[in-house]
Nucleic acid binder design. Structure first.
Length: 420
RNA sequence: GGAGGGGUGGCAGAGCGGUUGAAUGCGCUUGUCUUGAAAACAAGUAUGUCCGUAAGGGCAUCGCAGGUUCGAAUCCUGUCCCCUCCGCCA
């Protein structure tokens, strides 16, 4: 959520920032609601101050209230109730107006309203040829992926990994977690996958992206579309002690997405599915450290691609293409020689104080100082079925077998997936 | 699923209708003392919001939401969460 206070102080700054994202923000309405809000607070506070004074006097003097006092205070009480009702309506209105507004892009985020304006800022060395053997042909032939079985069990966009395919995915995830925990200083988290509405709202997924989420009506719980949702809620309503920041968390979880918006795109294979594994990095940092932290996370995700021997490139997303809660995002894409395209395997964002304001996570810079909102950063490190695809397609040998990247061999226990 | 107990400040823990933002202890900050530290002593130490240039003042908050009352941390209702025992169960 954007800061009401800051919007009121500099409405034009927010208007232009949101227009960059292609929004038409109701700034004037917000300003009007805020001034009504302040006026109502003053009315109610004045009445309450009066009532408190009278009640205190009665208490101090240890006497019964007079009939005049009782009738006057009843009147005051009624008036307070009616002003409070008005105020509640204004607050609800304000909330509904602010919640659907996305974060404002940072100054260095490129202009542009769609992915065509994204900037490729780095392309690694490595081959970008195509051999035309896509994973949806190669993997089923090797007996490590069963798309029909997935469809039979659960429907379109579900899949079954088998044998060395399943083991490869598990090995990749374990390796990534180990790199992040052992080399990058992250603490491993295993969070709940079903979360409350409040938690979903805190990350920015609700109320706006309801149609992309799985929900259980009976318990009113939501399946997480990414571990970010849970990691972001780890300190909700809490004040983080001085010297605790930065907090660096990593989690491997499934992600559940309805993918309604994808329509008929990426229907073949397992590039876009309803349930997939992902290793997610998440940081809570002091505001002044968030831009440097973002660069570090980009490096941490990039190094994984490099160590797997994959050709990858880094995109700086334009203002119109960054996610709802993001102020700046890098995407990492790896080359898929089978389908001859770049596959997005990581999206790394700073959400500034947008999420911590929503779920009331604060920190104290030092003992005795007043609280501030930390910034949150999130990034995939990395998204699994897609990295699995890249490993399979890049490891494909002339004889049809797959050679596994050296780094993960200690985790698989073997170096090659042979033709059966 | 059944029966009971409980949610109070950074932590522990009082208060159960009269002003209480809340005793007390611990922790923390500052000061005195000390060569320094510890101990001791003294003072201070919640969050949010509104008015105000500021100093300062008002209001709200004792899980959450309502209700009763001149007045609610205290009484009533609902709800969420935690704990204990029984049952069930991976």
């Amino acid at each position: 959520m954007l800061s009401l206070d800051q919007i009121v102080r500099d409405p034009e700054k927010f208007r232009t920032a949101l227009v960059r994202r292609g929004e038409d923000p109701p700034i004037d309405r917000i300003l009007e609601l805020d001034s009504r809000r302040k006026a109502l607070i003053q009315l109610a506070d004045a009445d309450r101050a009066h009532r408190n004074a009278v009640s205190k006097a009665i208490g101090d003097e240890k006497r019964k209230p007079t009939l005049e006092e009782i009738s006057e205070m009843r009147e005051v009480g009624d008036r307070i109730k009616s002003v409070e009702a008005d105020l509640a309506a204004v607050l609800a209105d304000l909330n509904e107006t602010l919640l659907p507004l996305p974060n404002t892009p940072l100054a260095d985020v490129p202009d542009g309203l769609n992915e065509e304006s994204n900037e490729v800022i780095h392309t690694s060395d490595g081959p970008t040829e195509s051999h035309g053997n896509a994973h949806w042909d190669v993997a089923p032939a090797l007996g490590i992926l069963d798309l029909e079985a997935g469809a039979g069990i659960s429907g379109a966009r579900f899949f079954v990994m088998k044998g060395k395919g399943a083991k490869l995915q598990r090995a990749l995830a374990a390796w990534m977690l180990d790199v992040h925990t052992n080399e990058h200083g992250y603490t491993e988290i295993d969070p709940p996958l079903l979360v409350r509405s409040e938690t979903m709202q805190g990350s920015g997924n609700l109320p706006k992206f309801r149609e992309n989420l799985y929900h259980d009506d009976e318990t009113d719980l939501w399946l997480v579309p990414t571990a970010e949702v849970a990691l972001n809620a780890l300190h909700q309503g809490k004040i983080i002690d001085p010297d605790m920041l930065p907090l660096k968390y990593v989690a491997q979880t499934p992600s559940f997405r309805k993918e309604h918006a994808a329509g008929g795109r990426d229907v073949r294979g397992i590039k876009r599915v309803h349930q997939f594994e992902k290793v997610e990095m998440f940081r809570y940092v002091e505001p002044q450290d968030s831009e440097a932290g973002l660069e570090e996370m980009l490096a941490e995700a990039s190094t994984l691609c490099e160590r797997l021997g994959l050709t990858y490139r880094v995109l700086k997303l334009c203002a119109g293409d960054i996610g709802f809660q993001s102020a700046k995002t890098y995407d990492i894409e790896v080359w898929s020689p089978g389908s001859a395209e770049w596959l997005e395997v990581s999206s790394i964002s700073t959400c500034t104080d947008f999420q911590t304001r929503r779920n009331n996570t604060r920190y104290r810079p030092e003992t005795g100082a007043s609280t501030r909102l930390p910034h949150t950063l999130n990034g995939s490190g990395l998204a699994l079925p897609r990295i699995w695809i890249a490993v399979i397609e890049n490891g494909l040998q002339p004889d049809g077998s797959i050679v596994i990247p050296e780094e993960v061999v200690p985790y698989t226990g073997w170096e090659r997936i042979e033709v059966p």
